[in-house]
Design a protein around this nucleic acid. Structure first.
Lengths: 128, 128
DNA sequence: GGTCAAAATGAAAACGGTTGTCAAAGTCAG
DNA sequence: CTGACTTTGACAACCGTTTTCATTTTGACC
């Protein structure tokens, strides 16, 4: 893994929620890193290939990245306001997916499950 | 709902799986329809706003559309080879999402759940 | 029929995130 | 130090999508 990929990973590890490539690039530059946008994209791709970061697509088609605590399979609970993200395991969902797939003759299952909502503190600040 | 939106909806209704905008546009043109790409995009947007078609993002960021049997909340089981799609209800998943959200103090939940796999007939043709 | 304003249409340009290009810079074993 | 190989980054190209804007169509109302 190249030097800059590590740097990108490091930046990601300090972040709370999902970040876009451009976003990461801007922050790294602001922190004085000498890195190009191309390299950030390459690093993110490499990291996600290695399963070291998770990737999500926003509704407007942007890819967003996050360094997750574990490489194990998990899903995300994302606050749509502040981006705060909780990793959640969902054994029930896995089983459900397997079941409906099998019932319909589908094999080699993969699935995407993401939950969006408003987190505690954002609810609080909205009420204020 | 405008004339061309109906035409797009009709085209979609004849399709088996999820289709991209450009794809739909090409087919309609091939069928002799006089319609512009812009209008197809606008129609798809209107239709999805009305909940008359479902939208998905492919892994490479393309939006794909499908006229679904029901306006009720449901998920999809999509064959990654032929695009064949089955609509599935997932009450268990809904409950799971509600539960993990509540446990973490999240409210106003929405979620995306899509399952990809290889369908019966594609498994068969691969073995042949 | 005719007139007019509002809505719909589509060709082309703009947009924006992402990926490709390619030459320069860095790395490292021998 | 040298040469082979890898990494980097400025910039251009790409591609799906959206915007623009002038033209056409629609549908009231006479």
């Amino acid at each position: 893994m190249s030097r800059s990929a590590e740097a990108v990973h490091e930046t990601l590890r300090h972040s709370e929620g999902f970040r876009s490539a451009q976003d990461i690039f801007t922050e790294m530059r602001a922190d004085g890193a000498k890195i190009g946008l191309t390299t950030v994209y390459r690093a993110l791709q490499a990291l996600s290939d290695d399963g070291r970061v998770d990737v999500l697509r926003t509704d407007d088609g942007e890819s967003v990245y996050r360094a997750c605590a574990t490489g194990d399979h998990h899903h995300h609970l994302v606050c749509r306001h502040c981006g705060h993200t909780v990793e959640v395991a969902g054994p029930d969902v896995e089983r459900w997916a397997e079941r409906v797939a099998a019932q319909n003759g589908f094999t080699e299952i993969t699935h995407t499950v993401e939950v969006f909502g408003t987190c505690n503190s954002c609810t609080a600040s909205a009420e204020r």
